[in-house]
Design a protein around this nucleic acid. Structure first.
Lengths: 203, 203
DNA sequence: CCTACCGATCGGTAGG
DNA sequence: CCTACCGATCGGTAGG
Protein backbone atom coordinates (compact mmCIF):
# COMPACT_ATOMS: atom_id res chain seq x y z
CA UNK A 1 0.00 0.00 0.00
CA UNK A 2 2.80 2.41 0.93
CA UNK A 3 4.11 4.42 -2.02
CA UNK A 4 7.41 5.15 -0.33
CA UNK A 5 8.92 6.19 3.00
CA UNK A 6 6.34 7.11 5.61
CA UNK A 7 6.63 10.79 6.46
CA UNK A 8 6.11 12.34 9.89
CA UNK A 9 3.06 14.22 8.64
CA UNK A 10 1.19 10.97 8.13
CA UNK A 11 0.58 10.90 11.87
CA UNK A 12 -1.19 14.25 11.79
CA UNK A 13 -2.87 14.30 8.42
CA UNK A 14 -4.73 11.01 8.09
CA UNK A 15 -6.63 12.01 4.95
CA UNK A 16 -5.56 10.12 1.87
CA UNK A 17 -7.71 12.10 -0.54
CA UNK A 18 -9.26 15.56 -0.66
CA UNK A 19 -12.63 13.95 -0.09
CA UNK A 20 -11.47 12.27 3.14
CA UNK A 21 -10.06 15.55 4.38
CA UNK A 22 -13.42 17.23 3.79
CA UNK A 23 -15.33 14.39 5.46
CA UNK A 24 -13.01 14.56 8.46
CA UNK A 25 -13.36 18.33 8.87
CA UNK A 26 -17.14 18.11 8.45
CA UNK A 27 -17.35 15.30 11.01
CA UNK A 28 -15.55 17.31 13.68
CA UNK A 29 -17.49 20.51 12.95
CA UNK A 30 -20.90 18.79 12.79
CA UNK A 31 -20.09 17.07 16.08
CA UNK A 32 -19.02 20.25 17.86
CA UNK A 33 -21.33 22.90 16.31
CA UNK A 34 -24.14 20.78 14.90
CA UNK A 35 -25.13 20.34 11.26
CA UNK A 36 -27.19 23.54 11.06
CA UNK A 37 -24.55 25.46 12.99
CA UNK A 38 -21.83 24.52 10.51
CA UNK A 39 -21.51 26.33 7.18
CA UNK A 40 -19.78 25.06 4.07
CA UNK A 41 -17.48 28.05 4.57
CA UNK A 42 -16.52 26.67 8.03
CA UNK A 43 -15.65 23.35 6.44
CA UNK A 44 -13.76 24.95 3.57
CA UNK A 45 -11.59 27.08 5.86
CA UNK A 46 -10.86 24.05 8.08
CA UNK A 47 -9.66 22.18 5.00
CA UNK A 48 -7.80 25.24 3.72
CA UNK A 49 -9.73 25.73 0.53
CA UNK A 50 -12.30 28.21 -0.83
CA UNK A 51 -16.00 27.30 -0.33
CA UNK A 52 -16.81 26.65 -3.97
CA UNK A 53 -13.89 24.24 -4.29
CA UNK A 54 -15.57 21.72 -1.99
CA UNK A 55 -18.09 20.88 -4.70
CA UNK A 56 -15.43 19.31 -6.89
CA UNK A 57 -15.34 16.49 -4.31
CA UNK A 58 -18.78 16.32 -2.75
CA UNK A 59 -22.32 16.66 -4.05
CA UNK A 60 -23.92 18.65 -1.25
CA UNK A 61 -23.86 19.44 2.47
CA UNK A 62 -26.48 16.78 3.11
CA UNK A 63 -24.57 14.05 1.28
CA UNK A 64 -21.67 14.84 3.60
CA UNK A 65 -23.96 14.17 6.57
CA UNK A 66 -25.40 11.04 4.93
CA UNK A 67 -21.94 9.54 4.55
CA UNK A 68 -20.70 10.49 8.02
CA UNK A 69 -23.80 9.06 9.71
CA UNK A 70 -23.82 5.85 7.66
CA UNK A 71 -20.11 5.25 8.25
CA UNK A 72 -20.49 6.05 11.95
CA UNK A 73 -23.36 3.66 12.59
CA UNK A 74 -21.49 0.96 10.68
CA UNK A 75 -18.57 1.23 13.08
CA UNK A 76 -20.85 0.63 16.07
CA UNK A 77 -22.55 -2.28 14.32
CA UNK A 78 -19.23 -3.84 13.30
CA UNK A 79 -17.93 -3.67 16.87
CA UNK A 80 -21.04 -4.90 18.67
CA UNK A 81 -22.94 -7.33 16.41
CA UNK A 82 -20.28 -10.08 16.39
CA UNK A 83 -20.27 -10.03 20.19
CA UNK A 84 -24.07 -10.17 20.37
CA UNK A 85 -24.04 -13.17 18.04
CA UNK A 86 -21.32 -15.05 19.93
CA UNK A 87 -22.07 -17.99 22.23
CA UNK A 88 -20.80 -16.52 25.48
CA UNK A 89 -23.33 -16.21 28.30
CA UNK A 90 -25.62 -13.15 28.14
CA UNK A 91 -23.91 -11.27 30.99
CA UNK A 92 -20.46 -11.67 29.42
CA UNK A 93 -21.84 -10.64 26.04
CA UNK A 94 -23.61 -7.58 27.42
CA UNK A 95 -20.45 -6.54 29.25
CA UNK A 96 -18.34 -6.91 26.11
CA UNK A 97 -20.91 -5.00 24.03
CA UNK A 98 -20.83 -2.11 26.50
CA UNK A 99 -17.03 -2.01 26.44
CA UNK A 100 -16.98 -2.21 22.63
CA UNK A 101 -19.44 0.67 22.38
CA UNK A 102 -17.37 2.86 24.70
CA UNK A 103 -14.21 2.07 22.74
CA UNK A 104 -15.89 3.19 19.49
CA UNK A 105 -17.12 6.39 21.16
CA UNK A 106 -13.70 7.18 22.64
CA UNK A 107 -12.03 6.60 19.29
CA UNK A 108 -13.88 9.66 18.00
CA UNK A 109 -16.40 11.42 20.28
CA UNK A 110 -17.31 14.00 17.62
CA UNK A 111 -18.26 11.35 15.10
CA UNK A 112 -20.34 9.70 17.81
CA UNK A 113 -22.17 12.95 18.49
CA UNK A 114 -23.05 13.20 14.80
CA UNK A 115 -24.36 9.63 14.84
CA UNK A 116 -26.37 10.21 18.02
CA UNK A 117 -27.81 13.66 17.32
CA UNK A 118 -27.30 15.06 13.83
CA UNK A 119 -29.11 12.32 11.87
CA UNK A 120 -32.30 14.31 12.53
CA UNK A 121 -31.22 16.82 9.91
CA UNK A 122 -31.22 14.25 7.12
CA UNK A 123 -33.99 14.59 4.53
CA UNK A 124 -36.95 12.25 4.03
CA UNK A 125 -35.42 9.07 2.62
CA UNK A 126 -32.02 9.38 4.25
CA UNK A 127 -33.45 9.80 7.72
CA UNK A 128 -35.46 6.59 7.31
CA UNK A 129 -32.34 4.64 6.38
CA UNK A 130 -30.46 6.03 9.38
CA UNK A 131 -33.31 5.17 11.75
CA UNK A 132 -33.44 1.63 10.38
CA UNK A 133 -29.72 1.14 11.02
CA UNK A 134 -30.01 2.58 14.52
CA UNK A 135 -32.85 0.19 15.28
CA UNK A 136 -30.76 -2.68 14.02
CA UNK A 137 -28.15 -1.62 16.54
CA UNK A 138 -30.65 -1.37 19.39
CA UNK A 139 -31.94 -4.80 18.41
CA UNK A 140 -28.59 -6.38 19.28
CA UNK A 141 -28.98 -5.13 22.85
CA UNK A 142 -32.65 -6.10 23.03
CA UNK A 143 -31.84 -9.63 21.87
CA UNK A 144 -29.08 -10.20 24.42
CA UNK A 145 -31.17 -8.64 27.17
CA UNK A 146 -34.15 -10.85 26.30
CA UNK A 147 -31.98 -13.95 26.23
CA UNK A 148 -30.50 -13.07 29.61
CA UNK A 149 -33.91 -12.64 31.16
CA UNK A 150 -35.13 -15.94 29.69
CA UNK A 151 -32.10 -17.91 30.88
CA UNK A 152 -32.24 -16.34 34.31
CA UNK A 153 -28.94 -14.50 33.96
CA UNK A 154 -30.76 -11.16 34.22
CA UNK A 155 -33.45 -10.07 36.65
CA UNK A 156 -36.92 -11.16 35.55
CA UNK A 157 -38.63 -8.27 37.34
CA UNK A 158 -37.26 -5.49 35.18
CA UNK A 159 -38.78 -3.99 32.05
CA UNK A 160 -36.77 -5.17 29.03
CA UNK A 161 -37.42 -2.11 26.89
CA UNK A 162 -36.64 0.33 29.69
CA UNK A 163 -33.54 -1.58 30.79
CA UNK A 164 -32.16 -1.41 27.24
CA UNK A 165 -32.92 2.31 26.95
CA UNK A 166 -31.20 2.82 30.30
CA UNK A 167 -28.08 1.05 29.05
CA UNK A 168 -28.06 2.75 25.64
CA UNK A 169 -28.75 6.11 27.27
CA UNK A 170 -25.75 5.77 29.57
CA UNK A 171 -23.63 4.75 26.56
CA UNK A 172 -24.89 7.40 24.16
CA UNK A 173 -24.29 10.12 26.73
CA UNK A 174 -20.63 9.09 27.10
CA UNK A 175 -19.21 11.37 24.36
CA UNK A 176 -20.31 14.29 26.56
CA UNK A 177 -17.74 13.45 29.21
CA UNK A 178 -15.31 10.85 27.78
CA UNK A 179 -11.92 12.44 27.11
CA UNK A 180 -9.85 10.49 24.57
CA UNK A 181 -6.70 11.70 26.30
CA UNK A 182 -7.90 10.82 29.82
CA UNK A 183 -5.99 8.81 32.38
CA UNK A 184 -8.17 5.72 32.06
CA UNK A 185 -8.10 3.68 28.87
CA UNK A 186 -11.46 3.46 27.05
CA UNK A 187 -11.56 -0.28 27.77
CA UNK A 188 -11.24 0.44 31.48
CA UNK A 189 -13.90 3.15 31.45
CA UNK A 190 -16.18 0.81 29.51
CA UNK A 191 -15.59 -1.88 32.11
CA UNK A 192 -16.53 0.51 34.94
CA UNK A 193 -19.72 1.56 33.15
CA UNK A 194 -20.53 -2.12 32.60
CA UNK A 195 -19.94 -2.83 36.31
CA UNK A 196 -22.37 -0.09 37.24
CA UNK A 197 -25.04 -1.28 34.83
CA UNK A 198 -24.70 -5.03 35.37
CA UNK A 199 -24.57 -5.11 39.16
CA UNK A 200 -26.18 -1.77 40.04
CA UNK A 201 -25.04 0.83 42.52
CA UNK A 202 -26.60 -0.77 45.62
CA UNK A 203 -24.35 -2.94 47.79
CA UNK B 1 -55.95 34.75 39.97
CA UNK B 2 -58.84 33.98 37.62
CA UNK B 3 -60.23 37.05 35.92
CA UNK B 4 -63.50 35.38 35.10
CA UNK B 5 -64.96 32.11 33.83
CA UNK B 6 -62.33 29.68 32.56
CA UNK B 7 -62.73 29.18 28.82
CA UNK B 8 -62.08 25.95 26.93
CA UNK B 9 -59.17 27.53 25.07
CA UNK B 10 -57.18 27.88 28.28
CA UNK B 11 -56.39 24.18 28.03
CA UNK B 12 -54.74 24.65 24.65
CA UNK B 13 -53.21 28.10 24.87
CA UNK B 14 -51.28 28.26 28.14
CA UNK B 15 -49.51 31.54 27.34
CA UNK B 16 -50.64 34.44 29.47
CA UNK B 17 -48.61 37.04 27.61
CA UNK B 18 -47.18 37.49 24.12
CA UNK B 19 -43.74 36.92 25.59
CA UNK B 20 -44.75 33.56 27.09
CA UNK B 21 -46.22 32.50 23.77
CA UNK B 22 -42.95 33.32 22.03
CA UNK B 23 -40.91 31.50 24.68
CA UNK B 24 -43.12 28.45 24.38
CA UNK B 25 -42.89 28.32 20.58
CA UNK B 26 -39.12 28.85 20.70
CA UNK B 27 -38.73 26.11 23.33
CA UNK B 28 -40.51 23.53 21.18
CA UNK B 29 -38.70 24.54 17.99
CA UNK B 30 -35.25 24.69 19.62
CA UNK B 31 -35.89 21.27 21.11
CA UNK B 32 -37.00 19.69 17.85
CA UNK B 33 -34.84 21.50 15.26
CA UNK B 34 -32.02 22.83 17.40
CA UNK B 35 -31.12 26.48 18.05
CA UNK B 36 -29.17 26.96 14.80
CA UNK B 37 -31.82 25.10 12.83
CA UNK B 38 -34.58 27.40 14.01
CA UNK B 39 -35.05 30.83 12.46
CA UNK B 40 -36.83 33.79 14.01
CA UNK B 41 -39.22 33.42 11.07
CA UNK B 42 -40.03 29.85 12.23
CA UNK B 43 -40.85 31.17 15.68
CA UNK B 44 -42.88 34.08 14.33
CA UNK B 45 -45.02 31.86 12.12
CA UNK B 46 -45.60 29.42 15.00
CA UNK B 47 -46.82 32.32 17.12
CA UNK B 48 -48.82 33.74 14.21
CA UNK B 49 -47.02 37.04 13.87
CA UNK B 50 -44.57 38.64 11.43
CA UNK B 51 -40.85 38.20 12.19
CA UNK B 52 -40.12 41.83 13.08
CA UNK B 53 -42.96 41.89 15.59
CA UNK B 54 -41.13 39.46 17.89
CA UNK B 55 -38.66 42.18 18.86
CA UNK B 56 -41.35 44.18 20.64
CA UNK B 57 -41.26 41.40 23.27
CA UNK B 58 -37.77 39.94 23.25
CA UNK B 59 -34.27 41.39 22.90
CA UNK B 60 -32.66 38.78 20.66
CA UNK B 61 -32.64 35.14 19.61
CA UNK B 62 -29.90 34.39 22.12
CA UNK B 63 -31.80 35.97 25.05
CA UNK B 64 -34.63 33.61 24.19
CA UNK B 65 -32.23 30.67 24.57
CA UNK B 66 -30.74 32.14 27.76
CA UNK B 67 -34.17 32.31 29.40
CA UNK B 68 -35.32 28.87 28.23
CA UNK B 69 -32.13 27.18 29.44
CA UNK B 70 -32.07 29.00 32.79
CA UNK B 71 -35.72 28.25 33.47
CA UNK B 72 -35.27 24.64 32.38
CA UNK B 73 -32.30 23.91 34.63
CA UNK B 74 -34.13 25.58 37.53
CA UNK B 75 -36.97 23.11 37.17
CA UNK B 76 -34.59 20.15 37.49
CA UNK B 77 -32.85 21.75 40.48
CA UNK B 78 -36.14 22.57 42.20
CA UNK B 79 -37.32 18.97 41.80
CA UNK B 80 -34.12 17.19 42.83
CA UNK B 81 -32.22 19.34 45.34
CA UNK B 82 -34.78 19.08 48.17
CA UNK B 83 -34.68 15.29 47.85
CA UNK B 84 -30.86 15.24 47.84
CA UNK B 85 -30.87 17.34 51.01
CA UNK B 86 -33.46 15.24 52.84
CA UNK B 87 -32.56 12.79 55.59
CA UNK B 88 -33.76 9.58 53.95
CA UNK B 89 -31.15 6.89 53.36
CA UNK B 90 -28.98 7.33 50.23
CA UNK B 91 -30.65 4.57 48.22
CA UNK B 92 -34.13 5.98 48.83
CA UNK B 93 -32.91 9.49 48.00
CA UNK B 94 -31.20 8.36 44.80
CA UNK B 95 -34.33 6.50 43.73
CA UNK B 96 -36.53 9.55 44.40
CA UNK B 97 -34.09 11.85 42.54
CA UNK B 98 -34.18 9.58 39.49
CA UNK B 99 -37.99 9.51 39.51
CA UNK B 100 -38.15 13.29 39.97
CA UNK B 101 -35.80 13.83 37.05
CA UNK B 102 -37.86 11.60 34.76
CA UNK B 103 -41.06 13.39 35.79
CA UNK B 104 -39.53 16.76 34.85
CA UNK B 105 -38.35 15.35 31.49
CA UNK B 106 -41.74 13.82 30.72
CA UNK B 107 -43.50 17.08 31.60
CA UNK B 108 -41.80 18.63 28.57
CA UNK B 109 -39.27 16.57 26.58
CA UNK B 110 -38.53 19.42 24.17
CA UNK B 111 -37.56 21.80 26.95
CA UNK B 112 -35.36 19.04 28.34
CA UNK B 113 -33.60 18.65 25.00
CA UNK B 114 -32.86 22.38 24.97
CA UNK B 115 -31.43 22.14 28.49
CA UNK B 116 -29.34 19.08 27.62
CA UNK B 117 -28.03 20.06 24.20
CA UNK B 118 -28.69 23.63 23.07
CA UNK B 119 -26.87 25.46 25.88
CA UNK B 120 -23.72 25.05 23.76
CA UNK B 121 -24.96 27.79 21.47
CA UNK B 122 -24.97 30.41 24.23
CA UNK B 123 -22.30 33.09 23.98
CA UNK B 124 -19.29 33.54 26.26
CA UNK B 125 -20.76 34.67 29.58
CA UNK B 126 -24.09 32.93 29.27
CA UNK B 127 -22.57 29.54 28.55
CA UNK B 128 -20.47 29.80 31.73
CA UNK B 129 -23.56 30.49 33.84
CA UNK B 130 -25.38 27.53 32.29
CA UNK B 131 -22.42 25.20 32.90
CA UNK B 132 -22.22 26.33 36.53
CA UNK B 133 -25.89 25.54 37.08
CA UNK B 134 -25.54 22.15 35.38
CA UNK B 135 -22.59 21.33 37.63
CA UNK B 136 -24.65 22.32 40.65
CA UNK B 137 -27.21 19.79 39.49
CA UNK B 138 -24.62 17.04 38.97
CA UNK B 139 -23.25 17.83 42.41
CA UNK B 140 -26.52 16.74 44.02
CA UNK B 141 -26.05 13.27 42.52
CA UNK B 142 -22.35 13.16 43.36
CA UNK B 143 -23.07 14.04 46.98
CA UNK B 144 -25.72 11.37 47.46
CA UNK B 145 -23.61 8.80 45.65
CA UNK B 146 -20.58 9.62 47.81
CA UNK B 147 -22.63 9.39 50.97
CA UNK B 148 -24.06 6.03 49.91
CA UNK B 149 -20.60 4.65 49.27
CA UNK B 150 -19.32 5.93 52.62
CA UNK B 151 -22.23 4.50 54.59
CA UNK B 152 -22.04 1.18 52.79
CA UNK B 153 -25.42 1.56 51.09
CA UNK B 154 -23.71 1.58 47.69
CA UNK B 155 -20.98 -0.66 46.34
CA UNK B 156 -17.51 0.47 47.39
CA UNK B 157 -15.85 -1.04 44.33
CA UNK B 158 -17.38 1.26 41.73
CA UNK B 159 -16.01 4.52 40.42
CA UNK B 160 -18.07 7.38 41.87
CA UNK B 161 -17.60 9.75 38.95
CA UNK B 162 -18.37 7.11 36.34
CA UNK B 163 -21.37 5.77 38.27
CA UNK B 164 -22.86 9.27 38.40
CA UNK B 165 -22.24 9.83 34.68
CA UNK B 166 -23.87 6.47 33.98
CA UNK B 167 -26.97 7.50 35.94
CA UNK B 168 -27.14 11.02 34.49
CA UNK B 169 -26.53 9.64 30.99
CA UNK B 170 -29.43 7.23 31.26
CA UNK B 171 -31.61 10.09 32.56
CA UNK B 172 -30.51 12.71 30.05
CA UNK B 173 -31.14 10.31 27.18
CA UNK B 174 -34.74 9.75 28.29
CA UNK B 175 -36.31 12.58 26.24
CA UNK B 176 -35.25 10.63 23.15
CA UNK B 177 -37.72 7.84 23.88
CA UNK B 178 -40.09 9.02 26.64
CA UNK B 179 -43.53 9.70 25.21
CA UNK B 180 -45.62 12.03 27.40
CA UNK B 181 -48.76 10.26 26.19
CA UNK B 182 -47.41 6.75 26.79
CA UNK B 183 -49.20 3.97 28.66
CA UNK B 184 -46.93 4.16 31.69
CA UNK B 185 -47.01 7.21 33.96
CA UNK B 186 -43.70 9.09 34.17
CA UNK B 187 -43.46 8.14 37.87
CA UNK B 188 -43.69 4.47 36.88
CA UNK B 189 -41.12 4.78 34.10
CA UNK B 190 -38.83 6.63 36.51
CA UNK B 191 -39.24 3.82 39.01
CA UNK B 192 -38.30 1.22 36.42
CA UNK B 193 -35.20 3.17 35.40
CA UNK B 194 -34.29 3.49 39.08
CA UNK B 195 -34.74 -0.28 39.54
CA UNK B 196 -32.37 -0.94 36.65
CA UNK B 197 -29.74 1.49 37.94
CA UNK B 198 -29.94 0.67 41.65
CA UNK B 199 -29.96 -3.12 41.47
CA UNK B 200 -28.41 -3.72 38.03
CA UNK B 201 -29.58 -6.05 35.30
CA UNK B 202 -27.87 -9.19 36.61
CA UNK B 203 -29.97 -11.56 38.71
C1' DC C 1 -8.89 24.43 -6.95
C1' DC C 2 -9.88 29.65 -7.86
C1' DT C 3 -12.70 33.72 -9.56
C1' DA C 4 -16.84 35.60 -9.51
C1' DC C 5 -21.25 35.31 -8.69
C1' DC C 6 -26.51 33.62 -7.98
C1' DG C 7 -31.04 33.89 -5.43
C1' DA C 8 -32.58 32.84 -0.86
C1' DT C 9 -32.57 33.45 3.79
C1' DC C 10 -30.59 35.11 8.05
C1' DG C 11 -31.08 38.22 12.65
C1' DG C 12 -32.50 42.52 13.44
C1' DT C 13 -34.24 47.70 12.96
C1' DA C 14 -36.83 52.34 11.90
C1' DG C 15 -40.96 54.31 11.79
C1' DG C 16 -45.49 54.17 12.25
C1' DC D 1 -48.05 44.35 15.76
C1' DC D 2 -47.24 45.67 10.60
C1' DT D 3 -44.61 47.76 6.57
C1' DA D 4 -40.54 47.95 4.56
C1' DC D 5 -36.11 47.31 4.65
C1' DC D 6 -30.77 46.65 6.13
C1' DG D 7 -26.18 44.28 5.54
C1' DA D 8 -24.48 39.67 6.23
C1' DT D 9 -24.35 35.09 5.28
C1' DC D 10 -26.25 30.90 3.39
C1' DG D 11 -25.73 26.52 -0.06
C1' DG D 12 -24.43 26.11 -4.44
C1' DT D 13 -22.88 27.01 -9.61
C1' DA D 14 -20.48 28.47 -14.25
C1' DG D 15 -16.44 28.86 -16.34
C1' DG D 16 -11.89 28.51 -16.40
Amino acid sequence: MAKGPVGALDVIDTANSPREGIMDAAMHLFGKQGYSGTSMRDIASAVGVLPGSLYAHIASKEMLLVDIVADGISRFLAAVQPIAASDADPAARMRAMIVAHVVVVADNPERSQVVFHQWRFLGEGNVQAAIAKRQEYEQAFITVMGEGIRTGAFRADLNLRIAVFTILGALNWSPEWLSPGGKLLPEVVGGLIADTLLTGICA
